[in-house]
């Protein structure tokens, strides 16, 4: 449920301006050969909100994520994060200025312990420079501070009893939790989650959802890609819909659920959705007749 009232003043249409945008994207395109995977004219993401990015498979959501976070380069376009121009910035610099992402296929660092995974996330570590690494007294104090912060986060994500296990031994859901907790070690302003609920069992989904909502409570902005509409309806303040690389719709979850363009994008523009119960019956009967005919045909073919 939206906790903010800012959505009331925003017209639900593609590219609409937000009262306090943290991320503003202009004319970003990315081609793969002849295919225009991403072609976003203008979109803004509200600060301190949870925005869902949805769309059918192949809509360009992950590519769009990769572009925004520096993991891929666009053919054209600019975007600003907190007023800072981001086009052409390397991925590690994007993370350092406070835009952190997770991956669709979870990237737990298997042969590092859970605690090492967490500590890696901290930025501005003195001991990460070669010369200072050789002199432990220079970084030991900072390391202890990082470890305390990591321990707090692990406790919050209920991974504290796993801290000394290799991350590779965690279950799929625990890895998702670890990845999210690790991203928070960067102390980001915006967290970009690529399908955070994919492959997670229902019990853990609830806990993950809680953590995503917590991010907003703590003042972070969240942008996430998701397929599960229940999840989207549950946690997002705003939904942006992509199809064939373009932003086709924007609005509150309730608005999006009724948007004809969105239904068309998911089911194909020429689908025949039943409009009356009679028609639904008729369509079902047709489908059954077709199936029967096919079965009969197959039986005839058998010797």
């Amino acid at each position: 449920m939206p906790t903010d009232t800012w959505v009331d003043g925003v017209t639900p249409e593609p590219g609409v301006a937000k009262p306090d945008p943290i991320l503003v994207v202009d004319g970003v395109t990315r081609r793969f050969g002849g295919l225009k995977a991403v072609d976003v004219e203008h979109v803004e993401f509200q600060r301190g909100a949870i925005t869902a990015l949805i769309g059918p498979n192949g809509a360009g959501k992950t590519t769009f994520f990769n572009l925004l976070t520096g993991f891929d380069r666009p053919d054209a376009g600019t975007w600003t994060f907190d007023g800072r121009r981001m086009a052409g910035m390397a991925a590690h610099k994007v993370a350092r200025i406070g835009m952190v992402r997770t991956f669709q296929l979870t990237k737990a660092l298997s042969r590092l312990t859970v605690m090492e995974n967490m500590k890696l996330g901290a930025t501005k570590q003195k001991g990460e420079s070669f010369a200072r690494a050789l002199l432990p007294p220079l970084w030991r104090k900072q390391e202890r501070g990082i470890e305390d912060r990591a321990a707090d986060l692990l406790a919050r994500f209920k991974l504290d009893n796993k801290r000394d296990d290799f991350a590779g031994t965690l279950s799929g859901g625990q890895r998702k939790l670890l990845e999210m907790a690790r991203a928070l070690m960067v102390q980001p302003d915006i967290v970009m989650l690529d399908e955070p609920m994919a492959g997670v069992n229902p019990a853990l989904t609830q806990s993950l959802l809680g953590h995503v909502k917590d991010l907003r409570t703590q003042g972070m902005s969240v942008l996430f890609v998701e397929h599960d509409m229940d999840v989207v309806r549950d946690i997002s303040d705003w939904v942006v819909v992509m199809a064939e690389g373009k932003i086709i719709s924007e609005g509150t979850p309730d608005h999006i659920g009724q948007d004809r363009k969105v239904i068309d994008a998911y089911l194909g523009a020429s689908h025949d959705a039943p409009t009356t119960p009679e028609e639904e019956q008729r369509q079902l009967a047709e489908a059954e007749a077709a199936l029967d005919a096919e079965t009969a045909e197959r039986e005839q073919l058998q010797p």
């Binding site: 976070t69 993991f71 991925a91 590690h92 610099k93 993370a95 350092r96 952190v100 992402r101 997770t102 991956f103 990237k107 737990a108 660092l109 298997s110 042969r111 590092l112 090492e116 995974n117 500590k119 890696l120 996330g121 930025t123 570590q125 003195k126 001991g127 990460e128 420079s129 070669f130 200072r132 690494a133 050789l134 432990p136 970084w139 390391e143 690790r182 991203a183 070690m185 960067v186």
Partner: peptide, 21 residues
């Protein structure tokens, strides 16, 4: 040291290391 930790994280998955700055 943290330096060695970064090296090992690159061995595991360099995109993950990149995503953490």
């Amino acid at each position: 040291s943290p330096w060695g930790r970064v090296l090992r994280s690159i061995r595991e998955d360099e995109d993950a290391a990149r995503s953490l700055g």
